[in-house]
Simulated scan of single mutants.
Amino acid sequence: MKSHFLFTKQQRHGIFLLVFIIVVLQISYLLFDFSSEKVPYNQEAYALYSKEIDSLRQIEIALQKTKIFPFNPNFISDYKGSVLGMSNEEIDRLLAYREQNQWINSAKQFQEVTKVSDSLLALISPYFKFPDGVKSPRLSAHRYDLNAKPKTVSQKLDLNTATAQQLQKVIGVGEVLSQRIIKYRNKFVGGFIADVQLRDIYGLSPEVIKRITNDFAVKTPRPVEKIDLNTATIEELVTIQHIDYDVASSIIEERTLRDGFTDLEELKKVKGFPINKLEIIKLYLSLEKENR
């Protein structure tokens, strides 16, 4: 064992030098700051940039979770805009522009009106779908001329025989909505009773419904045997769209208190009655005095 601890003079000098270097490095580490110098930056700009990155990340996650179909950016609602990542101010700018009867015809014009960022525009603009023929402001103004003479019923197409391609010629009706209209129509043998039933189709705004009825009308309504409101039973009433058992019971109760209805508008006084569906419900009802 003694031979393992015997060193030459040169070896001892080397060991001493190594220990000395280690001690010097340890002392230097304690006495001196070797951290890198901080680079100055604009904290406000960095915060805005970070916020935008986080927003875009959330939008990307939402787009991956939800199937997004092509849509006309002229008809973005508050909810749709928020899902797409638009701020309230950007949505308000778009709505204000539309209230002036102005129409957006390109992604560039959409950004000019709403002031959305380049990064957000790059994410959502691939889904923009503008109707055929809307290529220039001049042509767009012609298509949306509010002073144009309305069509007569004979000039309109029958909504009960319209094809998806014909419906898609209406501004605001794309492939999804046209198929949805036809699917709803085909739920009933004979199709629609009246134009007002378009209100029951999810995704059709009043503005779009108005455009549809400018070019289409129910010219061959399906026959309906109306129910006398003043003699109907609960079992008969619940067969009508939008009337459930509770509403039917309330109708019978109100009818008893009034000693019969004299006008279908009086249904608005019935407890729990879906007033926004009254025009559709009226398609299935009549009053005794009308049958005489």
Results as ranks from 00 to 15, higher is better:
residue 206 P to Q: 11
residue 159 L to I: 04
residue 255 R to D: 04
residue 97 Y to S: 10
residue 228 D to A: 02
residue 291 N to G: 14
residue 34 F to P: 01
residue 97 Y to T: 08
residue 86 M to K: 05
residue 73 P to Q: 08
residue 64 Q to K: 14
residue 126 P to N: 12
residue 67 K to P: 10
residue 275 I to H: 06
residue 134 V to W: 10
residue 179 Q to G: 11
residue 81 G to R: 01
residue 264 L to Q: 14
residue 150 P to Q: 03
residue 161 T to I: 05
residue 36 S to P: 06
residue 155 Q to I: 01
residue 5 F to C: 15
residue 180 R to H: 08
residue 106 S to C: 10
residue 65 K to D: 11
residue 77 S to T: 11
residue 124 I to N: 05
residue 249 S to M: 03
residue 249 S to K: 10
residue 177 L to V: 02
residue 167 L to G: 04
residue 221 P to E: 04
residue 72 N to M: 12
residue 70 P to K: 04
residue 155 Q to V: 02
residue 262 T to L: 10
residue 62 A to R: 14
residue 167 L to W: 02
residue 18 L to P: 03
residue 238 V to P: 03
residue 151 K to S: 09
residue 165 Q to N: 09
residue 106 S to E: 07
residue 235 E to R: 14
residue 60 E to V: 14
residue 273 F to I: 00
residue 216 F to K: 00
residue 10 Q to V: 14
residue 145 D to P: 09
residue 52 E to K: 05
residue 282 K to P: 05
residue 19 V to Q: 10
residue 96 A to Q: 06
residue 283 L to D: 02
residue 15 I to D: 05
residue 71 F to S: 01
residue 162 A to D: 06
residue 145 D to G: 13
residue 229 L to W: 00
residue 150 P to V: 00
residue 65 K to N: 12
residue 240 I to Q: 00
residue 282 K to Q: 09
residue 203 G to K: 08
residue 161 T to R: 03
residue 223 P to L: 13
residue 82 S to A: 09
residue 116 V to R: 07
residue 263 D to C: 08
residue 59 I to T: 15
residue 73 P to R: 04
